[in-house]
């Protein structure tokens, strides 16, 4: 179905891009093939201004209060949070693993950095994801071109700054091609020191 275009309201502060929130939840026993992933991922809203963002965000459950195997995704409008999307297929993501209890704060800070255009990498950012898992939570930042090392380095450094990460924090990068190959988001990553 065609959706009505989302635009900033009168007197609101426009964002550089419109962003769409998505939510997904998986029963761990079911196979995570592309079809079931696409069926499980639900578009929940699009925002075009700072004020629209806050109105929407304030009604969302905080990721730290979610249970089970679930994800919030915030992507530029028009980009599906899937490896196979045209905007993602040559891309990859930075991964930060968090101990339980930190996800809500990190999620908010990373969203604000993306909405405020703090990464300074042109059109490269596709979106951000918070993944709630049983033992740990994971924040990821997706960009368009996995092979562009200047861009990925700049994203990594911005993440360290906006999330105030200690220098010892392990950061991992994984290309979506590798994720498709081993059908896993967070296994077999490359560790950057």
């Amino acid at each position: 179905a065609k959706r009505k275009a989302v635009t900033p309201g009168a007197g609101e502060h426009p964002l550089q891009y419109n962003y769409t929130f998505w939510y997904s939840r998986r029963t761990p026993s079911r196979p995570a093939n592309t079809q079931s992933y696409e069926q499980n991922i639900k578009q929940i809203g699009t925002v075009a201004s700072v004020e629209q963002f806050w109105r929407f965000y304030s009604h969302l459950v905080r990721p730290g209060d979610l249970t089970g195997h679930s994800d919030f995704h915030l992507f530029k409008e028009g980009i599906k949070p899937m490896w196979e999307d045209e905007a993602n297929k040559n891309g990859g993501k930075w991964i930060i693993r968090l101990r339980k209890g930190l996800a809500s704060r990190f999620w908010e800070n990373i969203i604000l950095a993306m909405l405020g255009e703090q990464f300074m990498v042109g059109e490269e950012i596709c979106g951000v994801v918070v993944s709630i898992r049983f033992q740990e939570d994971i924040i990821s930042v997706w960009n368009k071109t996995a092979s562009d090392q200047a861009t990925t380095a700049r994203i990594r450094d911005t993440l360290r700054r906006v999330l105030n990460l200690p220098p010892s924090t392990i950061m991992e990068y994984k290309t979506h091609t590798d994720s498709i190959k081993d059908n896993s988001s967070f296994r077999n990553t490359k560790i950057a020191v």
Partner: peptide
């Protein structure tokens, strides 16, 4: 074109504006 950049402090201030609530 010009890029619309907001720092965290500004975005947090907008959170409390009447339009955002």
């Amino acid at each position: 074109g010009t890029r619309i950049i907001y720092d965290r402090k500004f975005l947090m201030e907008c959170r409390n504006s009447p339009v955002a609530r």
